[in-house]
Amino acid sequence: MKTLSLLFTAALAAAMLFACSNKKQDPVTDPAANTPPPAAQAAPATTDDDAAKQDSIEAARLEAQRARAEALMNQLMSDDIYFDFDRSELTEKAKEVLAEVGDILNKEPRFVVTVEGHTDERGTEDYNMTLGANRATKVKDYLVAYGIAADRLQTVSYGEENPKAAGHTEADYKENRRANFKVHIK
């Protein structure tokens, strides 16, 4: 896992360099990065709005680059934190994953994170909203204790509304009792 995440970090850094030096779009990375190639590029640059066109090209390029970096970072932090039934305490396994997440965030200070807390479908919608909030907050608190600035971490509870597994078995419930990360560039 550790080596894997280092590999990802390396990949991320490489991708950023690549993005800086090359305007070519990579369709695999992220659909959001797939902005249509600016038609203006082909047109003869003779008029007054040439500068504006250049600006919009540059903006599109930056936006694509940003989307790509975000997509990579989200992939890097796609490991979920799992919880026991009706509990919000962090398990040892959860703490291991969070330590890696903390390392990644320490290395990438440009990124801010939304921690999303979820529950399985058992119980009421209302109480599960509070349970999801508890879980997200436990994750946030751990990362703050790990040295991540609190203002880089937001929490939101989805309660039982956003299950990862659609079934109704114990295995599905286990998948759904989780916190996950959404990463954005500041």
Binding site: M129, T130, A133, A136, T137, K140, D141, T155, S157
Partner: peptide
């Protein structure tokens, strides 16, 4: 209504 701050409703 309920409102969540710092993990508490």
């Amino acid at each position: 209504f309920s409102s969540i701050t710092d993990g508490k409703a």
